[in-house]
Amino acid sequence: MKNVRLIYKKTGRSKFISHLDLNRLMIRVLKRSGLPIWFTEGFNPHAFITFALPLSLGFESRYDVMDFRVTDLDLSYEEIFERLKSALPPDIVAVKVYEPTTKPKIICFADFEVYVECDDENYNKLSEFLNGDEIIVEKTTKKKEVKTFNVKGKIKQFSIEKTETGAKVYLCLPAGNIENINPTIIFDSAEKSGIEFDITDVIRDKIYDENLNLFV
């Protein structure tokens, strides 16, 4: 049995594939690839695949990670890469394939780029909002209660820069097993405070461990 990590980009129209659907899609991709996939044993055997960090519906990703296993030890990673590449749909692009040396549970942070459309006035307001001391957001707990808290302290790094049509906001946020902050809650909060803009795209970029070392 051989462990395989696939890094791929989820772009274009594939951003509308939900996590559940992606799971099913990948099982079919593996089957199409003809690779000897390792199946779990037991009553209901299924292809063993794990995603390091699930992505929200509507987000693109430049660095999505999926682990699986093949039964043939002699298969080269190049071969696996080529076969996956031809089995994937056009908007899911294989980047590389290798033997994983880390466990997904060490992931703690992720970079996000959020593209918004707005006028200059609202650009300034948004910039002020992000630079302020307090960003109060709402989060629904598992018990379906709505709680508010200040998310500012959770933002590891951020920046905002002007684009032709509005702004590009960069955010590094907690992501992974322990804590997850979805960038959209920050923008929901900005909207509530009266700033007007349209989010046109959200891209998740690099992912990190707790010391902000790149997760590979």
């Binding site: 129209r13 509308f16 594939i17 939900s18 079919r28 991709v29 509507g58 056009p90 046109t200």
Partner: peptide, 27 residues
């Protein structure tokens, strides 16, 4: 275009109904 599609799909349930781009679809 895809950007307009993104706008259009705001608040729509099951956006995957409208996005195309599936395996074996023909362009």
């Amino acid at each position: 275009n895809e950007k307009q599609l993104t706008q259009l799909l705001k608040g729509v349930q099951k956006p995957g109904r409208y996005t195309g781009g599936e395996l074996n679809s023909i362009i």
